[in-house]
Design a protein around this nucleic acid. Structure first.
Lengths: 113, 113
DNA sequence: TGTATGGTTAGCAATATGGCTAAGCATGAT
DNA sequence: ATCATGCTTAGCCATATTGCTAACCATACA
C-alpha cells in the first residue's frame, strides 16, 4: 500500500476541477485539438493550455503536435491507480462496517446520555 | 449526467491531499479523536482541523463532540458519487476504444506524413 | 477552586491555482 | 512573400490552500 502516492495526488487534483472533467468528457468522444477543447468552455486558450498540462502530468491524456495543431487523446489506463485505491478503501471500510464495533459504541454512547 | 457536480469537486479535492488520505486510512481502523488523527501526521492541531473540515464538507467523515473530545468517523457512502463517475468514464472510454476510429485516424495521419 | 487537557479561533506567511491580456512563433494557404 | 490560423510564452491579478503561532474556550480532575 502506497503511503504517499504522488500519482494519486496528481490524479485526484486533476479531476477536482469541473472544466477539466468537461474536457475529459469531450475527449471521450474522440481526440480533439486544443481549440476544439476550448470552445465549449468559453475560456481562453492559455487557460485551457494550463488545464491540459495538469491533465497531461496526471497521465490522463497524451498530446502530440501534428503540423500546427496539437491533438489531445485520452489515456484510459490512467484511471487504474484511482480505481485500485477506491477498491482498497471499499474493502477496508466495509470490513469495518462488518465488525460493527464502531456502530455499537455509538449506540451505547447515545443510550447513556 | 451532471455537467457541473460540485459534489465531485469537493470529493476529488478532498482526496487529492496525502495528509487527508492518511487521516482517512486511520479512520478506516475505527473512529478517532482529533488528537489521535494529528499524531501520526506530525502536524499541528489547527492544521488538522482545517483538513477535517475539508473532509467533512466533502461528506467523507462526520464528527460529533462528546464532552471535550470530538470524535470523527468515516461516512463510507460518500465515495458513491465518485465510484459512479469512475464507472461512467470507464464505460464511455472503453466504448471509444471498441470503436477504434480514433486509433485508425492516428494511424492514417502517421502514414500520410 | 484551580489547573491541566483537548479543542477552537484569529490571523499571518508562503505558495498554488485559475483566470486574463499581450505579444510571439510556426505552419498552411494565397 | 504575405497573411491568417493555431498554438505558445510571459507576466499580471485575485483567490484558495496549507502550514504556522498565539490566544482563547470548555470540560475534566485534583
Amino acid at each position: 500500500m502506497a503511503k504517499h502516492d504522488p500519482n494519486l495526488d496528481l490524479l485526484f487534483h486533476a479531476l477536482s476541477d469541473p472544466t477539466r472533467r468537461m474536457m475529459l468528457a469531450r475527449l471521450a468522444e474522440g481526440s480533439a485539438a486544443v481549440s476544439e477543447l476550448a470552445g465549449p468552455t468559453g475560456l481562453r486558450l492559455p487557460t485551457i493550455l494550463r488545464h491540459l498540462s495538469v491533465l497531461e502530468e496526471a497521465g490522463l491524456i497524451a498530446t502530440q503536435k501534428d503540423g500546427r495543431v496539437r491533438s489531445c487523446a485520452l489515456q484510459p489506463q490512467a484511471l487504474a491507480p484511482m480505481r485500485d485505491w477506491l477498491e482498497e478503501q471499499r474493502r477496508v471500510w466495509e470490513a469495518r462496517l462488518d465488525r460493527l464495533d464502531d456502530y455499537v459504541m455509538n449506540l451505547m454512547k447515545e443510550r447513556n446520555k
